[in-house]
Nucleic acid binder design. Structure first.
Lengths: 153, 153
DNA sequence: TGGAAACCCTGTAGCAACTACAGGGTCAAG
DNA sequence: CTTGACCCTGTAGTTGCTACAGGGTTTCCA
């Protein structure tokens, strides 16, 4: 099958498939005489593996590592377990940071309800006070929440 | 004050300050004879404002927009309110996606407890089954959860 | 048979929000 | 007078894609 069909089968964009190949996440397929990539069934499974891992929030480097373990089944899977633990911890931290963030945003939103002049807007005032006062620890020194790291990629 | 002190006062890296200036988020300061940036108290407040907004997950474009409203207090703050609403909605969606993700990761982690050979690792098996089976909707077609979008920038 | 649409190729540049140099100049202390 | 800490500009890297530009190929329909 050609790249377009692989894309349709996996729900992955053509450009992304070529990107994964460049990054060594997808084996290089054979080529037709015209230079087209010719994929086989294994490629579908391999690409699905990558997409599944990505949907679990893993980085491409981590996925490469997992593929390494698929290729060497005699090694212990210690590292795989660590990877999952790290991943779960990461997600937990993100959730906690986002909960905090939501509270802050809601508190800020509470300060303005109807459309009026920006000079009287409680939200803008709130943002300015937070910036000027030193009693706002949310963005100072070494980041406290880490909220800014994931709150938008 | 010079850029290093501003960095210390705001907990923001020197390179980031210069980056914000280039991006138009921080007013260009005067220069000393040697060409060094000379900041004043207003710059501290301005930079804190930016950092605070960033810690609330806003993009640089959104912060520029807010600064625009600070500069034009006669406008209505309708847009500011919309921005906050969007932001809150964004955070809520991210939290939901991450909860789902955590469940999936925990289920996967359950499949392997002690270090043994990778060939017998329930986690790797789980990942492969998910990739091969068509009954796994988490990464197929048009993305269902959107988890991959924020689960690591 | 011809021509248009749909597909494929490589290579490069863009996105966001920084971060990290390289290769210089300046300044204060000892 | 030299060492080290600081500052400058400019450019390239990061992550995981996405979007061209500027070509070639294949397929379908008339």
């Amino acid at each position: 099958m050609r790249i377009g069909e692989l894309a349709r089968l996996t729900g992955c964009e053509v450009e992304t498939i070529r990107y994964y190949e460049r990054e060594g996440l997808l084996d290089k397929p054979q080529r037709t005489l015209a230079g087209y990539r010719a994929y086989r069934h294994e490629h579908v499974a391999q690409l699905n593996f990558v997409r599944h891992c990505r949907s679990l929030g893993m980085t491409l480097a981590e996925i490469r590592l997992l593929q390494d373990y698929r290729a060497h089944p005699e090694r212990t899977c210690e590292v795989v377990n660590r990877l999952l633990d790290t991943q779960i911890e990461r997600v937990r931290e993100q959730i906690a940071a986002l909960h905090l963030l939501e509270q802050q945003l809601r508190a800020l939103r509470e300060r303005c309800h109807e459309g009026h002049a920006a000079r009287d807007c409680g939200i803008l005032q709130g943002l300015e006070q937070a910036a000027e006062g030193s009693e706002c620890p949310c963005h100072g020194r070494k980041r406290a929440t880490g909220a800014e790291e994931q709150a938008r990629g």
